[in-house]
Design a binder for these strands. Structure first.
Lengths: 231, 231
DNA sequence: CTCCTCCTCAAGGAACTACTTGAATAGTGG
DNA sequence: CCACTATTCAAGTAGTTCCTTGAGGAGGAG
């Protein structure tokens, strides 16, 4: 110890350790897994379907994430449920995406190709939505799969999974603004919802990001399941 | 567009794009480069020496970082200077380290092996240091290489690069607390400084992290070079 | 212009990564 | 205890990454 020649091997090993975390996120399929897990815990089979990979491969990717501590597991009966190790991991994922949007030239094109033209979708910022919920002049619709809604959602939101939205539009009051949200800024569900609602003549916009960002900002959430609006 | 089957290829491509950013940080040498560049811009030869790699290899790693937009360049005469693309990148690096510390089991050992026993080093938190600087009852010492100090430092800090500290201890007033800082929470300079100062009977502690975190927290910095304390 | 310095690019080999298929394991429910 | 289900492990292959060496630019000084 003390003031001496730099300990190259030790420094390299430490930074290799940091790099392992980045490497774990350095695969598109694992990134998708983290994105889904930010909504709440899921079992392997379910996750495999979500990312469109084989179960064995998905299990392998989950192990990679678990080895560096980004995810944790819990067994329930025959199933193994994976979850993010902490909200900090969701925060890391969020910052990573922001940097990608700000600096990585090709993200714009890729996002445009996947999400379609977003110019018409007018984003609602979190603070604006907080205010409008307080004023009570807006309906907040969670268009994620119902299980994700049940695991946690924006306080006061109703659950209408995107695939049921077309059938349930008529149950929404016609003269109130609708704000749709889903998993995050790069999730298509809310985009699709806004387009559909507008086609039906409703005033609809989407939240700028999704539930994980809302929760990480310490804004009010509900975790007790609320009965889904049925027709 | 609209409510239809998920566009798997498009989604995969987008998330591969995000993963590229992580992949760029997913190498220990590139992580070291980002850590150094968070202090300010540097030219290639200098960076190669800093990370202990060949110039060609360093140039290659820098190109990798530049391709995904994490770093930017500027030419001055025959030299090419690299810098982080923005403060957001330093923020990403910082969050990544925090997650590593919180969740990656082996970081503790690696950090202990590299940094030595830190228990005795009593950390000073940023907010405490802000208060004590305002009270004027502390000397803040920047122990990084002088060029990094010149590129930006905590407002009011004096520059005593670690390799000169032993010779300059006598010039520090004896009855005032000293707080040392350097590049970040995993930089050895400040640790070494505190150990040295204590051996000489001074009251010394280290700042919890380093200059990049101070600047990113929007705390007061100086960028105009201040004459170095000489003996 | 010519030389020099600093940096980047290209080729090549060792080591690693991603995904597939098929076998093994752990825990449950009867 | 047996059969079953969900998950993990193992082996194999195609593709990628890291680092080295040496050649090829770009810009400035003389």
């Amino acid at each position: 110890m003390g003031v001496m020649v730099a300990d190259r091997a030790g420094k390299d090993a430490l930074f290799d350790g940091f790099a392992e975390i980045a490497k774990a996120l350095g695969n598109g399929r694992r990134a998708e897994l983290v994105d889904v897990l930010a909504q709440g815990e899921r079992h392997v089979e379910d996750l495999a379907a979500e990312i469109g990979q084989s179960i064995a491969n998905t299990s392998f990717h989950l192990r990679t994430l678990a080895t560096v501590g980004l995810v944790a597991t819990r067994r329930d009966g025959t199933r193994v449920y994976y979850r993010l190790a902490s909200a900090q991991v969701a925060e890391l994922w969020s910052v990573l995406r922001e940097v990608a949007v700000a600096h990585h030239a090709s993200i714009d094109e890729l996002a445009a190709a996947y999400l379609g033209d977003r110019d018409a979708l007018e984003l609602v910022r979190r603070d604006e939505l907080v205010r409008r919920i307080a004023d009570g002049d807006v309906i907040v619709v969670d268009v994620r799969p119902h299980l994700e809604y049940a695991a946690g959602h924006i306080a006061g939101a109703v659950s209408i999974p995107i695939e049921r939205l077309a059938r349930q539009v008529r149950n929404l009051p016609a003269d109130v603004d609708v704000v749709a949200y889903c998993r995050g800024p790069f999730c298509v569900f809310a985009d699709d919802a806004v387009r559909l609602l507008r086609k039906r003549g409703r005033r609809a916009r989407r939240l700028e990001d999704g539930f994980p960002e809302w929760r990480n900002a310490s804004l009010p959430v509900q975790t007790a399941p609320i009965p889904e609006r049925t027709s």
